[in-house]
Computed example of a mutant assay.
Amino acid sequence: MNKTTDIAALAKDVQAGNRRALARAITLVESGRKDHREDALALLDALGTKKQALRIGLSGTPGVGKSTFIESFGLMLTGMGKRVAVLAVDPSSARSGGSILGDKTRMDHLARDPNAFIRPSPSQTQLGGVARRSREAVALCEAAGFDVVLIETVGVGQSETVVAQMADLFVLLLAPAGGDELQGVKRGIMEMADLILVNKADGDLKAQATRTCADYAGALRLLRKRPQDPDGFPKALTISALKVEGLQTAWAEMETLTDWRRDSGIWNVTRKAQASYWFEQDVRNGLLALLMEDPQTAERMKTAQDDVKSGRKSPTAAAASVLQPLRDLLGTRVS
């Protein structure tokens, strides 16, 4: 069987909703090998972009219960007859580069649901709380016929806003806490959130969760209204993922916002802007890869790094010495 037939067969299996084939396809697009990258591009081209799933980006503070929420929320959606894919990004060790990838063990009930698919991926060196090929993994899940794709980020941080460039809705999950919690969440991620869900609103924490929700609702009112939001959005709600309370209300709000954006045309405008953003990112990454493949540039890099380590040059001056020959070659003056 030749390569063309292999790619065609894999594309057919993915479109048929075969979860094992989908897992193989995601492994292919995540690979850094050059031949695998060529196959991945051929696969994505063969699949096209016919189906559009609802992409929901999900971020939250450590210990907030993201896995519990995803399992309860996912099971609720599959109970409605929807097919749900979960792309969970695990932090990678800066020392070893490894990741635990234990999301399936934390969502064992959802992992066994035939209408659900869970894929943990390492973040590697990628900033923004997502893996480098998360966007392509989302496209594969759409091609496989999933109705909802949940993209779980590494955790709350200023760079987590990158997930908003691949999601239709951005949900921020928070725990009941005092004023310090509100101070700890960065303004950037608050401005990106479409819905803030205060989890663990049950038992002794219910009253505190209600107060926390009110605090965030007040903070949201202070933010400038966004053109992609109808009146009342973004908003904050209380939920209990453990008790499965408030999830239907949260889903109803997501549907309301999604329907409004579709009807107003903002959905398509946003998708086009996201496609343009990722095009520029791919061009930048491709240019950097091409530079690193050039032997002369690699040698200049090594020399410059030695100069930086020895203190003969500052990092800025060393970087300029590497880039200057390229500027001269292009005939372009870059300030």
Rank of each mutant, 00 (worst) to 15 (best):
R33Q: 15
F69Y: 10
L287T: 09
L110V: 05
K235P: 08
H36F: 09
D215R: 09
D231W: 02
W251I: 08
R211S: 07
M254N: 09
K186R: 02
L127D: 07
G32F: 04
L47R: 02
S123T: 07
I7F: 13
P295Y: 07
F279H: 15
G17D: 10
R83E: 11
Q248P: 01
L197R: 04
G311A: 03
R83V: 02
R187A: 08
A217C: 08
E191Y: 01
A139Q: 03
G102F: 04
K206I: 00
D307T: 00
Q158W: 03
D90Y: 06
G128F: 05
D90K: 00
P295Q: 05
E160S: 01
D202I: 01
A40N: 09
I70M: 14
D39Y: 12
T316M: 12
K34G: 03
E71A: 07
T303S: 07
K313F: 03
L291F: 14
Q124V: 00
L47C: 06
T249P: 06
E280P: 01
R20H: 15
G74V: 06
T249D: 13
D39N: 15
R262M: 10
T27Q: 11
W267E: 10
E191S: 01
G178I: 00
I196C: 04
W251E: 11
Y277M: 12
I118E: 02
S310P: 04
A275V: 11
M107K: 08
S264I: 07
V84H: 09
M1V: 10
L290K: 10
T49N: 15
R327N: 03
T256Y: 11
V154Y: 01
K104E: 10
A46T: 11
K12A: 15
G17M: 14
W260D: 12
P120D: 06
A214D: 11
A317R: 02
V185C: 03
L150H: 00
L22V: 14
P120G: 07
L174E: 02
A85R: 06
A144L: 05
Q165H: 05
L288H: 13
R37L: 12
G32T: 14
S314V: 00
P295V: 00
P62V: 10
V334I: 13
P120S: 03
